[in-house]
Every structure is written in C-alpha cells, then in structure tokens.
C-alpha cells in the first residue's frame, strides 16, 4: 500500500454522483404551494420566521410549477379542481415530488360527499403524507425532513402516472363572461 497516496492529506474527497445530487437537492427545495383551504394558514405559519422552513432549504416558494420541484398540496381538493391539480403536476419538470398536506389531501378528511376528492393520490402520485386537521408546524417539519431523506436517497413515489390520458378538457367552452 506504500504506492497509494495518503487520502487524508489530499484536499479532495470521493462520492457517488447520485449521493451528491441527492444531498444538494434535499437542501434546495423549491416548493409550489397549491393552497386551497384553511391548511394554508398553517403552511404560512410554518414557512415564516417562527418555525422557519428556510432552515431546511425550503424557504423560497415558487409560484410557477415550471420552477418548482416539490408540489405542496395544501387543502381540500374538489372534483372540479382535480383537473387543475393534475395539470399543475404535469407542468412541473422532473425530478418532482408531491407532499399531501393535511387529512383532506391524504384521504378526503371528514368530507365524504359529492364534491370532494377522497385523497389526491387518486389523481397524482404522492411521496409524503402529513396528516392533521390542520397539522402542527412540528408535524409539517417532520414531514419535510422525511421528504428530505427520500430526496437524498433518490427515492420517488411510483412515477408511473396513474392515468395515462391527459386530463380531459371537460368539454368546457371558453366563456370569458362566465362570471357574469
């Protein structure tokens, strides 16, 4: 072993490319907050300075899905909104992850009616579920750290899109005056 260099004295290190990428990615989360309901307040409480999501490298939400890599679905999703959520998910570039924030997104919560999607995993693949109504900020940060572990290990929810067809455009005619 005399011929080999003394690694400890050299100013470099070895790693695997995926490990390095995962390490970098887990501390540079650009989340897209898809906020529809009261959980949004809890998301804001977690994101701002008191709990400070920025400690985990997730301090800079992007409001364009094309610039984001984690989709935070925060709040109840109705059947009417489901095609929008699916489209936002489709617009995000790989690699991408999805966090279901609150019980409504996990399972539909206490809603069991004609209007509500019973869990967003019936529409898009989900990586981390954060239950709670709403979840405590500590709970959210725990979920965020679990997501970081997942990102660092290069794991993803089954990427196979559950529904190969693009969301139907529902045959809705364009009606600019529809609000009148």
């Amino acid at each position: 072993m005399a011929d080999s260099p003394d690694v400890a004295k050299l100013n470099w290190m070895t790693t695997r490319i995926d490990a390095a990428l995962g390490w970098a990615r887990k501390f540079s989360i650009f989340q897209y907050p898809f906020v529809t309901a009261c959980c949004g307040m809890e998301y804001m409480a977690t994101a701002t300075s008191h709990y400070d999501m920025d400690r985990f490298g997730a301090g800079f939400p992007r409001f364009s899905p094309r610039q984001a890599d984690v989709l935070f679905v925060v709040g109840t999703i109705s059947h009417k909104l489901a095609p929008v959520l699916k489209r936002v998910y489709d617009q995000m570039t790989e690699p991408k992850w999805v966090v279901a924030f609150g019980v409504c997104t996990c399972t539909g919560g206490f809603y069991d009616n004609y209007a509500t999607v019973m869990g967003i995993d019936t529409i898009i693949p989900v990586d981390v579920y954060i239950p709670g109504c709403p979840p405590r900020p500590e709970n959210v940060l725990d979920g965020l750290m679990k997501l970081q572990e997942k990102i660092a290990q290069g794991e993803k929810a089954p990427a196979a899109v559950l529904f190969s067809a693009r969301p139907q455009e529902v045959g809705l005619p364009h009606r600019p005056e529809a609000h009148l």
């Binding site: 059947h79 009417k80 095609p83 529409i123």
Partner: peptide, 11 residues
C-alpha cells in the same frame, strides 16, 4: 354515495 369525478377513479 354518488360520485362524478372529472378525472380519476370513482373513489
């Protein structure tokens, strides 16, 4: 129990 989703299964 009737559901009419636009996309996705009848959950």
């Amino acid at each position: 129990r009737k559901r009419q989703p636009i996309i996705g299964p009848l959950n």
